[in-house]
Amino acid sequence: MSTATDTTDTTDATDDDANATTAPSSPSFGGRSRRNLPRLRHLRRLRHLRNLPRLRRLALQSLLPVALLIAWYLLTRFALVERIFLPTPASVGEAFVKLLLTDNLLNDFQISAITVLKGFGAGAGIGLVVGMATGLSRTVEDLLGPLLNGIRQVPTLAWLPLIILWMGAGDLGKTVLIAKAVFFPVFLNTLQGIRGTPREYIEVGRIFDYGRLRLLRRIVLPSALPGIFVGLRFGAGISWTVLIVAEMLGARRGLGFLIMRAQELLHSDQLFMLIVIIGVVGFAIDAGLRRIEARLLRWKRGFEG
């Protein structure tokens, strides 16, 4: 949570400050227009204190993860659980070093990452284009809607055997599977976003004689953008999940394969390590997307909790 909202906070603050300093408080509009200035001054005075709430949030956000770590340590320290079920934090750290140095962890990681990027890129790209076309044209919607809705009802992983049969267990099959999984959330949210563009804004475009392309670029797409980002973030999460599962079911490389191998060899320390890595990477992907979102949607101010 912290990254996205923090960036919004700071951009807002700088924008506000810019206003406060550049606005030569014109006498022509009385006290009302300056209504928001006292708040800005207040903000500026508190600037040196701004780190305080941020630290508080950081502490709050890390509270549970740290507690979990401590519990884990205590459980293993006093041998309350068998090692094979719950390895010590230290041995998981050692497993990481071993995987990294002798087992070419980076190599497997790279393979997984590239597959996800390819699948996500393809799925999100096609989802955006098809979503836009469907959103803008009822004809396209009638043409594609029923088929896509049918395909959507079949869980992604149910396609796996067929895709392996057609494309093998290699990169291509996984990329296609991920692309399929990412396509739907992006497609549906783009469609919804475009259809949700307020009529009132379209009218503003009509008044200024906007053509279809300009209407799309300046009104429809910006209006759909919050929805599109919901789809992208959702899709990114799914793509990582699908990749790991696909690699677990049929692969000779990649993080998912390493998990299966660790299970077969009863390396529970490696198992733990891989789960942490997969979680952290997924978290990082989402945080990155949230940063981009916060930047692109900086005009938006919602309920901040």
Partner: peptide, 21 residues
């Protein structure tokens, strides 16, 4: 309309009267 200096503000930062101007 008396909004000089607000060129780079977002509409959400304006009061009702300012937005209408």
């Amino acid at each position: 309309v008396g909004l000089q200096g607000f060129e780079r503000a977002w509409p959400a930062q304006l009061s009702g009267g300012m937005a209408q101007r």
